[in-house]
Design a binder for these strands. Structure first.
Lengths: 348, 348
DNA sequence: CAGACTGCGGAATGCGTTTTCCCGGCGCGC
DNA sequence: GCGCGCCGGGAAAACGCATTCCGCAGTCTG
């Protein structure tokens, strides 16, 4: 344990140099090996001094001196949401492998807040910005956001959007439409004929894409969904519950199968069905999208479309760290997972 | 839309000053209003120039100049884990309210990695560090970590530990023992008599505390648990599954009720029981700890002890931002939630 | 043994800010 | 009319570090 006096200020490179009896320049060179060489004796003395004083370089000072930082910025909608936290896990993993510090901001699903965040983020001068937004259309703030990102990029920054294909930046998208399409075909093949879809308001792109893909898949199989069974509700568990309650109140109206555009909504729906005395999987099939952890643990286990969220985060970072030019668009594929909530009706 | 040429470098305060026809000093004063006053005409011209050039101050440069940053550092075990992501949500919320940027690092439940993170974090010179570690005892790295944190604090930094009471820093703890104690009493009151406990290896403090609290609560009610029913397993879903499988293999051995020190483990256990042909809640009661989202959604809904994780994060930030001296220890209370996985045996 | 070259240490410069210090002008009281 | 305080502007120092430039020794070449 060193002397550790009541110092109110951190130890600087200057202190280390003095302790080692060399100049600041030599100390700097010894500590982060530049192209210049420094005599081994001096080098070891500097390192010893640094260790003794417990020195850590001031990253901000390094950043201004070098003209670039070693941080990656991540903006998410809500870090408590498993969707975003899984992506965040991928991003932080890749960042750490690349020796980058990650700063995170949560936009709370508000485009205005998202804009404000990117604004202050730009001051951070991060190496790259990954935006996993909530994909809500909003024309006014959108152009402002674009301007901000454009300015950031023209100053040498790198931006990757997750799941926002229509912006002129690198993106990694999730195959929402394709996954829903495949799910629809699989369910049709399992013998289901009369469907309901629980979707979110049209401004939520993810919901729109999944819904469209699902309907396309059914159409391909010669099936359709009556308009009154495409039910719009909130993009939450409560939304799923509410829609299912309404449907159950009408005695299901012949619906054999409910597709909710989100696992969370699907789980809410299962809960509502049960509360109405209906057994999910038996009286009515339920399927979701995302494959969150709970999907496996509910009973009956929920049929869903798995999204490799962690992989999405990793991919976003890989793109951001590569020096390929031009807007790239990597689409990560999804896989449908049939489980007990949608037993085959063929054998019955 | 400004001219926006192919500039490869960000616009600096210098550019703004030149555009406004004033000195850098005045520009700085105009933009972040110091104690000095600047003529309103100049001020508006500076602001106009800043807006026109789309200027954002270089935060790193500000940091070195001012001698302090506006960032809060958060280190978590695994951001994809709902336990940590809920805490992270609280921390980021409080940070944003205080106008702080949050940088996040994930330690992956490894004390060595945690140490390394704090080391580089110290270079960041954050205003505060919140550590939500995995509470694994590890003597060697522990003292090194302490030294690092001590150095950080003596340089004016603030550190708050979550759930690590025994370190000489501010802490916010979760009443693990108390919650488990209350749960035990509630279960005993519901008529359960023969218990098993699924716990993690002794090095995991959280597990130890919850286990001890549970046993104390039973003792208080004149009950006990045979040693062979205190089963040590992994601190994961798979661990819970495995322990339950072993127990089911022995035909439950008269056990009426399983307490797993974690909801995740409890859910794994329910899955194993079901796979063994046993109905959780009917053939054997199951209880967990944490009240993660899934706990409500599994069937039967899982009896558990709710931990206000988001609140924990908020509290940690509140402590860190207050200027109270001395080590504070705020304990957040837990509440037991009896649900269908532990029906009362009194009425039977 | 002279001259070119190499290796390495230190002083100086720069990074984008803030902040201190100095200085000129203006209003005001006498 | 004159000194004095105040207001506001700019030059320059400071922040902690990286890097370029300069010079000094020592070594190699012929």
């Amino acid at each position: 344990m060193p002397e550790a006096p009541e110092r109110q200020t951190a130890v600087t490179l200057h202190d280390v140099a003095r302790e080692a009896g060399v100049s600041v320049a030599t100390a700097s060179r010894a500590l982060n090996g530049s192209s210049r060489k420094v005599r081994t004796e001096n080098a070891t003395r500097v390192r010893a001094a640094a260790a003794k004083l417990n020195y850590r370089p001031h990253l901000s000072a390094q950043a201004t001196a070098r003209g670039q930082t070693r941080t990656a910025a991540l903006v998410v909608g809500d870090i408590a949401d498993p969707y975003f936290s899984a992506i965040a896990a991928g991003v932080t993993q890749a960042a750490e492998e690349a020796g980058l510090i990650v700063t995170m901001a949560v936009a709370g699903r508000s485009p205005a807040r998202e804009l404000e965040i990117v604004r202050t983020l730009r001051g951070q001068r991060p190496r790259l910005i990954v935006i996993a937004g909530s994909r809500i259309d909003g024309a006014e703030t959108r152009t402002a956001l674009m301007g901000e990102l454009e300015a950031y990029r023209s100053a040498g920054g790198r931006v990757v959007m997750i799941s926002q294909r229509d912006l002129p930046f690198d993106t990694v998208t999730i195959d929402n439409a394709g996954g829903a399409y495949q799910l629809a075909r699989a369910l049709a093949a399992a013998g289901y004929r009369r469907f309901a879809v629980f979707r979110a308001p049209a401004s939520v792109r993810t919901s729109r894409d999944r819904c469209a893909g699902f309907l396309a898949g059914l159409r391909e199989m010669g099936l359709g969904v009556e308009d009154r069974f495409v039910m719009e509700t909130e993009f939450t568990r409560a939304g799923g519950y509410e829609a299912a309650r309404r449907l159950a109140e009408r005695g299901l109206d012949g619906v054999e199968m409910v597709f909710a555009v989100t696992d969370v909504m699907a789980i809410g729906a299962m809960s509502a069905f049960r509360d109405a005395g209906l057994v999910p999987g038996l009286d009515v099939g339920v399927a979701g999208f995302d494959d969150i952890d709970s999907a496996r643990d509910v009973t009956p286990a929920l049929t869903t479309v798995a999204v490799p969220l962690r992989q999405v985060g990793l991919t976003a970072m890989r793109i951001a760290l590569s020096d390929d030019p031009g807007p790239v668009n990597v689409q990560t594929s999804t896989t449908v997972l049939l489980r007990e909530s949608t037993p085959s009706r063929r054998t019955q």
